[in-house]
Amino acid sequence: MSPPLVSIVDVRKKFGDFQALDGVSLDVQAGEVLCIIGASGSGKTTLLRCVNQLVTIDSGAIWVDGALTGWRIEGTRLHALPEKEIARQRLATGMVFQRFNLFPHMTALENIIEGPVQVQGRNRAEAVREAEALLARVGLADKAGAYPANLSGGQQQRVAIARALAMKPRLMLFDEPTSALDPELVGEVLAVMKELAASGMTMIVVTHELGFAREVADRVVFMDRGAIVESGPAAEVLGNPREARLKAFLSAVIA
């Protein structure tokens, strides 16, 4: 078997006195769709944000696409990488936020080409062509010139997915991508994510959408108090939970 695309090894993170991550280890294979579930405060969002270094870990190691993220190995010491290098490493991952975080002063198209043109220095005309194709892929071909304020939540989140894809990442991170949406808009975003999963993209999805997890995830991880409590194929974890905490969580979510 080829090495995993993402390898998280014994990662710990404290915010003040709060132990957000308490020794998490996890591998994600290329092409795999992994869903992380758990109550709020369980550390699932923090773990996701550690993968693309929006949160700096206290100890442990995270490898993405063969590279140790955030640190340079020198003898038996790890030295923090400079900001520029961290920014470059982030190009391997795309991130979709709960609150979309589109740039409000740019149109949908400008949001999508911002990274490719400004950060990757790619040809603008080519970036525009690709952005138009991405907008069509997420079903928003007619919204290229619209500002985020004039788009619905579901449309904004689909633009945000297109913006992340425009960087041609190896890995896509989703942080509760449908939690801020009105119920009737959840489906359109999940549909885009299903299509993306089917195309072979490696995805780590923090979600409360158990239906999506059951249908799309290759593997589901349940976290509680900063640690992974249970992990396995979606049908098993969601259909036949072993841990008491997972059983309690599932019955609370479904009820």
């Binding site: 693309n52 920014a87 982030r90 936020f97 975080n101 740039f103 911002e114 990274g115 400004q118 950060v119």
Partner: peptide, 10 residues
């Protein structure tokens, strides 16, 4: 965060 996530420096 969104700016960082598409690889921008501060």
């Amino acid at each position: 965060e969104a700016a960082k996530a598409i690889g921008m420096t501060r």
